[in-house]
Amino acid sequence: MENKPRDRILQAASELFYSQGIKATGVDAIATLAGSNKMTLYKHFPSKDDLVLAFLRKRDADFTAWFVDRVESKANQAEDKLLAIFDVIGEWLEIPEYRGCAFINAAAEFPLEGNPVHRVSAEFYDRFRGYISDLAAQCGIAAPDSLALQLSLLVEGAIVSEQMQRHSGAAEHAKRAASVLIASGLSGTH
């Protein structure tokens, strides 16, 4: 069964935006890769900005579902899930197609906070920190939002480090630092 034109266009845009960057990717290249034309592209996505936002929203849904499923499959206890986050990030950093985080990359290309692309990227990380904060709260950590921010900073740093130097072991180093932060948070609860 053939994919619908909208799906093909979104898939082509996703591949090109992630591998080449958003601003470096033209709608002609997207239409060509999708086996479509610009008229059909604009029928489904009235502007390139609409296509970029659709890409980021789909990436958010797909990555979040994959990520949470992988973390949940690796651990049963909330404390173990906090550490499993870094194992899952490590798996992702090792895929050959890895080109960094689509949301960090998009925010770098659209740095103004009011820009819709920047907002969607920031919202992804707000939800990511919320997931970590919920796990920290389940552990009984007194300041779960604070720990979530600290662990998120470690994740983001590992992502960028790995983007700058492949096979750097950044996720493992971040996990070791996270274990210290988690232990400190737990010791404050007893």
Results as ranks from 00 to 15, higher is better:
residue 107 A to E: 13
residue 107 A to L: 09
residue 107 A to K: 15
residue 108 A to K: 10
residue 109 E to Q: 15
residue 110 F to R: 06
residue 110 F to W: 14
residue 110 F to E: 10
residue 111 P to Y: 15
residue 111 P to M: 13
residue 112 L to A: 15
residue 113 E to K: 07
residue 114 G to K: 12
residue 114 G to E: 13
residue 114 G to V: 13
residue 114 G to R: 11
residue 115 N to P: 05
residue 115 N to W: 11
residue 116 P to T: 13
residue 116 P to E: 10
residue 117 V to M: 01
residue 117 V to H: 08
residue 118 H to A: 08
residue 119 R to K: 14
residue 119 R to Q: 15
residue 119 R to T: 09
residue 119 R to C: 00
residue 120 V to Y: 06
residue 120 V to C: 12
residue 121 S to V: 11
residue 121 S to L: 14
residue 121 S to Y: 10
residue 121 S to H: 04
residue 121 S to W: 09
residue 122 A to W: 06
residue 122 A to Q: 12
residue 122 A to L: 10
residue 123 E to K: 11
residue 124 F to P: 12
residue 124 F to W: 15
residue 125 Y to Q: 09
residue 125 Y to A: 08
residue 126 D to Q: 15
residue 127 R to L: 10
residue 127 R to H: 12
residue 127 R to S: 07
residue 127 R to D: 12
residue 127 R to Y: 02
residue 128 F to I: 07
residue 128 F to S: 08
residue 129 R to F: 03
residue 129 R to V: 00
residue 129 R to D: 06
residue 130 G to P: 00
residue 130 G to A: 08
residue 130 G to R: 06
residue 130 G to H: 04
residue 130 G to T: 01
residue 131 Y to G: 05
residue 132 I to R: 05
residue 132 I to H: 02
residue 133 S to A: 14
residue 133 S to M: 06
residue 133 S to L: 05
residue 133 S to T: 01
residue 133 S to F: 04
residue 135 L to Y: 06
residue 135 L to N: 02
residue 136 A to D: 07
residue 137 A to D: 05
residue 138 Q to H: 12
residue 139 C to A: 05
residue 139 C to W: 05
residue 139 C to D: 00
residue 140 G to C: 02
residue 140 G to W: 02
residue 140 G to P: 00
residue 140 G to N: 04
residue 140 G to Y: 00
residue 141 I to T: 05
residue 142 A to W: 01
residue 142 A to F: 05
residue 143 A to F: 11
residue 143 A to C: 08
residue 143 A to V: 03
residue 144 P to M: 00
residue 144 P to T: 07
